[in-house]
Design a protein around this nucleic acid. Structure first.
Length: 510
RNA sequence: GCCCCGGUCGUCUAGCGGUUAGGACAUCGCCCUUUCACGGCGAAGGUCGCGGGUUCGAAUCCCGUCCGGGGUACCA
C-alpha cells in the first residue's frame, strides 16, 4: 500500500495545563499528542498556563510542567518561558482581554450577570437533589426583571457572568476521534464565564485564547467532552470559526479506574527518579491510545512525528501497564553506546531523588566508583550489565561487585561449589597462571580451559561456576571470561586469595 | 438521577462487511549458552461485553441491554 502523506496548511496546537501540581503521565500524554500533531504538519506547539484559579495554584508547578516536557524531549515554539507573538502565555496576565469579550457577550445577549450567592446556589442544588430533579443552575437571574437587577447591582452585591445557553435545539460538533457528538442544548448549564473575583473560568478563557492565539486543533482530555457544547456556543456567539476538536481517552490504572496517586507513581517526573529514560516513557505513553497503524512498538520521537495522526487515536481508555514500560525501557537502555551509557547512568546517579535508590548500599558503592575508578573501568562494568537491566537504577546493584572487594558470597553458590574437593586447586591454578598486566577475554577462556584440563574436570562448567562465585560472590551475571577480563589479573588474584583464605578458615563450613 | 463517551487474548493494540481475528508485553516450553539476561523459535491465552436485527456473509452496520469511565463547581 502506498503511504499516503498529507500536510495541513497551518497547524497551531496548544498544551494548556493549570499549574496545580506536577503533571502526571495521563496529562502529559495530551501534551505529547499536541506536540506530535504540530511537528507532523510543520506547525506550532504552544504552551499556555491556565492559572485562572488562584486558590488551587501550586508554587513551582510551572517549572515542573516545563521540566516534564523537556524530559520527554518535547520542544515548544511559544510559551511562558520563550514568549512569542501571541503572548502573554499566562492567562492571569490576559484578564483585560476576557473582560472585554465578556462585555461583548452581555451586549449581544449571549451572557448575563448573575447575583446568586454561593449559599443560594447550594440551597438550590440541595432542593434539586432531594426532589430528584436534574441538577444545574435554574437560570433565575437570566429572567429577572431589569429593575430587580438594577437593585441588586445598586446593593453592591458581587456578581458573576453566565453564558446564556440556547433554550432549545441541539448542539452538534465533530470530534476527530469519536465522530459526531450531539447534545440537547437545554440540558447544558448556564456556565459561569467570569467569576466574582474577576478571573475567567476555563470555558471562557480557553475559547478566547484559542481564538486569539490562532489555535486550529484542540486536542485535550476526555473529561472535556461534556463541556464542549458550551465552548461551541461561545464560538458561535463570538462569530468565530470552530477549531477541530479531538478528545483523547484517559489512562487507567490496573484496576480500571482513572490513573491516580492510589496507583503509585503517576507524576511524570517520578519515572525519571525511578530510572526510566524520557524517550522510553514518551514512546510508551504515546502507545496507550495511539498506534502508527503498523506493528512498530519502539519508536523515537522523530518516528512518531512522522507517523502521527489524530484519527489514529483510540476512543477507548487504556491501562498503564508498568511491566511493558519496564521492558521498553530495557530496550532503550540496550540501545545506548558505551559513552552514552556511562553518561546516562552517572547523570541518573547524581541527580535522582529517589530515596530508596539513594539509601541503598549499592548506590553508594557506585557513587564511590565514579570518583575512584577510571571511566574505562566503570564503563566496561556497565557494559557487561547493560543487557540484563531494565532501569537505570538497576545498574548499581547489578555492577556492585566490580567496585567492592568486600562482597558477600551467595550461600547457594557456596553450598554448591565450595565444598568440591578440587576448588582450592582450581583457584590456585588460576592464580599461578595469571598473566601480569592484562587479561583478554580469549586469554581468560584459555586460562579456565587450561585449569579444567589440568584438574581433569569432566566439564569446564565445573571450573566456571566456582570461579564466578569466588570472583563476584554471585551465581549469576555476565559471562565469566568477560568479567575476568574487566576485573584484570590483580583483582582476580586478590579475590581468589581472599576466597581461599576464607575457605581455609572454614568460614563457609555449615 | 440526568447527560456524554467507551467495551477485540490478563495488558497495550491491528482490524473499518468475507482474515485460520494479526503483532507486542506478561506467562509457559524449547534452542543458544558457563549462570542470569539478551536473542531465536514455539505454545497457551480472544464465543471480538451480552441480546436481537440488517446481510448470502458481521468484531466491523442498526437497535436494545449490561458493565466501565467522565461530566453534572464562581476547579481545570
Amino acid at each position: 500500500m502506498r503511504k499516503v502523506s498529507f500536510r495541513l496548511l497551518m497547524v497551531r496546537v496548544r498544551y494548556a495545563p493549570s499549574p496545580t501540581g506536577s503533571p502526571h503521565v495521563g496529562n502529559i500524554r495530551t501534551a505529547l499528542f499536541n506536540y506530535l500533531m504540530a511537528r507532523r504538519h510543520g506547525g506550532q506547539f504552544i504552551v499556555r498556563i491556565e492559572d485562572t484559579d488562584k486558590a488551587r495554584e501550586v508554587p513551582g508547578a510551572v517549572e515542573e510542567i516545563l521540566e516534564s516536557l523537556r524530559w520527554l524531549g518535547l520542544t515548544w515554539d511559544e510559551g511562558p518561558d520563550v514568549g512569542g507573538p501571541y503572548g502573554p502565555y499566562f492567562q492571569s496576565q490576559r484578564l483585560d482581554l476576557y473582560h472585554k469579550r465578556v462585555e461583548e457577550l452581555i451586549a449581544s445577549g449571549h451572557a448575563y450577570r448573575c447575583y446568586c450567592t454561593p449559599e443560594e446556589l447550594a440551597e438550590m442544588r440541595e432542593f434539586q437533589r432531594i426532589n430528584k430533579l436534574p441538577t444545574g443552575y435554574d437560570r433565575r437571574c437570566r429572567f429577572r426583571k431589569p429593575e430587580e437587577l438594577e437593585r441588586l447591582a445598586a446593593e453592591g452585591r458581587p456578581s458573576v457572568v453566565r453564558l446564556a445557553m440556547p433554550l432549545e435545539g441541539t448542539i452538534v460538533f465533530e470530534d476527530s476521534i469519536r465522530g459526531r457528538v450531539e447534545v440537547e442544548s437545554k440540558l447544558v448549564d448556564d456556565q459561569v464565564l467570569l467569576k466574582a473575583d474577576g478571573y475567567p473560568t476555563y470555558h471562557l478563557a480557553n475559547v478566547v485564547d484559542d481564538h486569539e492565539q490562532g489555535i486550529t486543533h484542540v486536542i485535550r482530555g476526555d473529561e472535556w467532552i461534556s463541556s464542549t457544547p458550551k465552548h461551541v456556543v461561545l464560538y458561535r456567539a463570538f462569530g468565530w470559526e470552530l477549531p477541530v476538536f479531538a478528545h483523547a481517552p484517559i489512562i487507567k490504572g490496573p484496576d480500571g479506574a482513572k490513573l491516580s496517586k492510589r496507583h503509585g507513581d503517576t507524576r511524570c517526573l517520578d519515572y525519571r527518579e525511578k530510572g526510566y529514560l524520557g524517550a522510553a516513557v514518551a514512546n510508551f505513553i504515546a502507545l496507550i491510545g495511539w498506534s502508527p497503524g503498523d506493528d512498530r512498538e519502539k519508536m523515537s520521537l522523530r518516528e512518531m512525528e512522522e507517523a502521527f495522526s489524530i484519527e489514529r487515536i483510540q476512543p477507548n481508555p487504556g491501562v498503564f501497564d508498568i511491566t511493558k514500560l519496564q521492558w521498553l525501557n530495557g530496550v532503550y537502555i540496550r540501545d545506548l553506546n558505551a559513552s552514552e551509557l556511562y553518561d546516562t547512568v552517572r547523570q541518573y546517579h547524581e541527580t535522582t531523588q529517589d530515596p530508596e535508590y539513594r539509601q541503598s548500599k549499592a548506590a553508594q558503592t557506585l557513587g564511590k566508583a565514579f570518583e575512584e575508578f577510571s571511566r574505562e573501568y566503570v564503563t566496561s562494568a556497565l557494559l557487561l550489565e547493560q543487557e540484563r537491566v531494565r532501569l537505570l537504577s538497576d545498574f548499581a546493584e547489578a555492577s556492585e561487585f566490580f567496585f567492592d572487594e568486600e562482597y558477600e558470597y551467595d550461600p547457594n553458590g557456596v553450598a554448591k561449589w565450595f565444598g568440591q574437593e578440587y576448588v582450592v586447586r582450581l583457584f590456585e591454578f588460576v592464580i599461578e597462571n595469571l598473566p601480569g598486566a592484562a587479561l583478554s577475554v580469549e586469554e581468560a577462556e584459555g586460562l579456565v580451559n587450561g585449569a579444567a584440563d589440568a584438574l581433569g574436570l569432566a566439564k569446564r562448567a565445573e571450573a566456571i561456576h566456582p570461579l564466578r562465585v569466588a570472583l563476584t560472590g554471585r551465581t549469576k551475571g555476565p559471562g565469566l571470561f568477560e568479567l575476568m577480563s574487566v576485573l584484570g589479573p590483580d583483582r582476580i588474584r586478590r579475590r581468589l586469595e581472599r576466597t581461599l583464605a576464607l575457605i581455609r578458615e572454614g568460614a563457609f563450613a555449615s
